[in-house]
Amino acid sequence: MASFLTRTRGKGRLHWTDWASYAYLLLGVFIMFAPVLWLVVSSFKTEAELQHYPPRLLPYIQKTITLPGHDEPLPVFKVTRGELAGQEVAQVRRIGLVSQVVRPEDPQTIVKVSISDRAPVERVALATTNYSKLFARFNFPRFFWNSLFITVVATAITLLVNAMAAFALSKYEFRGRGTVMALVIGTLMIPQTVVLVPLFLVVREFGMINSLWGVIIPGAATPTGVFLLRQYMLTIPDEILDAARMDNASEWKIFWRIILPLSAPALAVLAILSIMWRWNDFLWPLIALSRSENYTLQLALNSFQGEFTTDWASLLAMTVLTLAPIAAVFAFLQKYIATGIASTGGK
């Protein structure tokens, strides 16, 4: 307990509290990573392998062989008992408990083997069938496009609109500024979750229900964004602005030529937050988009698990493709994301 609580550590040798700390952290790694890893590995298993119980850790694929006289590649088995024991055979068809097999050297002569006397010949390999099926059978590219469109357009609008407001609130003295600040704080108190019904009406009146714009527009102005950018812009010295005004630059030009580039770090933090909010958004899209061709990835994922209770094969592949972009962004920008989220308290 001792030094564990204080961050000091016995010099030289590892104290038992160090062992306890590392044990805790490694357990943490296991609990945080293992389920996600398991999902990713599972998504590369064939449907037959997904049915396998107890589940095996690695994905296996049954060996197949193409023989003359048979159109489809045939699954290969190893016979365990009987006169063919020890030999590899290809199964032509299975009838009840009997499997009709042929020997590769003699593909025309069918031999009958009890299914309990054979075992599949397998090797560890990634099966990509779940993924190809996703593109062939489902409207996956469409969902992906919807999510991408919402994320990119909404983030662009959020950055511009919030930066404009933050510029006004940080660089101008005008009557009513205090009131506007209070209003911005006020919106912090109004999460979307408590105004769903009237929001639905407003968005409907604009004709944006079942349109991607109905998801993009309502959340485009964020109090978090205004605050974050304003705090940052306050640190930009006014002298730069005055110098530009001397050179007869318009206020708009000052905004986008000087303020925006100088606020790049804060804009980047807001961009990351916005991308995350939008890509992962669920409740409002669930209400605003009811036609499946407008579904975002999140909605599609959720509806799939209802529609096909057993089609884990497609669901797993789709989950992996949904988390992949965020994982990629995280891998590159981990540090910025963490500090950005911690500094704004926005998530």
Partner: peptide
């Protein structure tokens, strides 16, 4: 240049009013 601040604020305020404040009031009506 002074009152131009409102032009910069306008888009944000319009969005806030339509999609945050107005819904709060309408919520009571509903």
């Amino acid at each position: 240049p002074r009152r131009l601040a409102w032009a910069f604020l306008a888009p944000n305020l319009v969005l806030f009013s339509l999609f945050a404040f107005l819904p709060v009031i309408l919520n009571f009506v509903y």
